[in-house]
């Protein structure tokens, strides 16, 4: 057979849809576990855990390779999906005057391309809000403020500390920050260590409305609502997509059909559901 069929034949296109889709499901699980640290670990400990995790995710070479595979999957899944949708549209040039598709198929299964497009829009905004800032912007570093009681009486002295990648805290006033995260001894070319970008603080002020200790944000309720709507869209996409992927690669045979369908429905409710409650909890508490 011609090698081009590996990309162009209708069935091969579905293999690619399925494999990239299932890989993205795995990515979702990993991403979710990371995000859950935002609500399950509180205080300075939570902030540290999340920022250390974010640093690990942006610096580990193995994760870097996985992230390129993820970008590739998102792009390939989108392009392949658009190509499939165009071919499918062409296959029925004239529509029925009266159609009743609800009698034979689920609503999400008929709107996969629309749901997918909405998810792609969400991914773009989501990456601009967090991924882009984490990778390319100068954002505040992880700091901790401690109070040293004034033994002579009077006001306590507030000291700002940076958390370093070695795990210790250093007094902020002794250093200047260069190259976004590097600590240098003031006026000297002496690098003393590296800090963590405070992604935790970025998330908290993004979804928390004027939270004490974080940047003021009046738009947080809209961010929370839009995020939750995006997760609902993702849920509908997965409601059909998860088990559909197994069908496309030919493993949804009678003995596995039921378990795969149940797993798909559970996955599509639990994973987007847990993603969605994180900003809500940040907003409310």
């Amino acid at each position: 057979m011609s090698k081009s069929a590996i990309l162009s034949s209708s069935i091969a296109k579905k293999y690619w849809m399925a494999l990239t889709g299932l890989f993205l499901c795995l990515f979702l699980v990993g991403h979710l576990i990371g995000n859950l640290q935002l609500i399950f670990i509180t205080g300075e400990e939570g902030k540290r855990a999340f920022n250390e995790y974010a640093h690990f995710m942006t610096h580990n070479p193995a994760i870097k390779a996985l992230s390129y595979l993820t970008y590739f999957s998102i792009i390939f899944h989108s392009i392949d999906g658009i190509m499939l949708a165009i071919k499918n549209k062409k296959a029925r040039p004239q529509n029925y005057a009266y159609n009743n598709p609800g009698a034979n198929s689920s609503t999400p299964s008929r709107y996969m391309a629309v749901l997918g497009t909405l998810i792609l829009v969400f991914i773009c905004t989501h990456m601009a809000n967090f991924w882009g800032k984490m990778h390319f912007d100068t954002i505040p570093l992880h700091t901790k403020t401690i109070e040293i009681p004034n033994e002579m009486g009077g006001e306590a002295q507030k000291v700002e500390l940076y958390l370093t990648t070695k795990g210790d805290y250093v007094a902020a006033q002794q250093f200047e920050v260069r190259n976004e995260t590097e600590f240098y001894v003031k006026d000297l070319d002496l690098k003393m260590g590296e800090g963590y970008k405070d992604l935790h603080g970025l998330v908290m002020s993004f979804f928390g409305q004027n939270k004490p200790g974080f940047d003021k944000n009046d738009l947080a309720p809209f961010a929370v609502i839009l995020y939750m709507l995006a997760m609902a869209t993702l849920g509908f996409h997965l409601w059909h997509g998860f088990s559909s992927a197994f069908q496309s690669v030919g493993v949804r045979v009678s003995s596995y059909k039921h378990p795969i369908e149940i797993a798909g429905k559970v996955f599509s409710v639990v994973v987007p559901g847990l993603f969605a409650i994180i900003p809500l909890i940040i907003y409310l508490f």
Partner: peptide
């Protein structure tokens, strides 16, 4: 499958409408 594609039929979205 090649002939099916050439004839201009669409792809499968696994909606299951056909089976019903």
């Amino acid at each position: 499958v090649k002939t099916m594609d050439e004839e201009g039929f669409g792809n499968c979205t696994n909606t299951g409408a056909c089976e019903v």
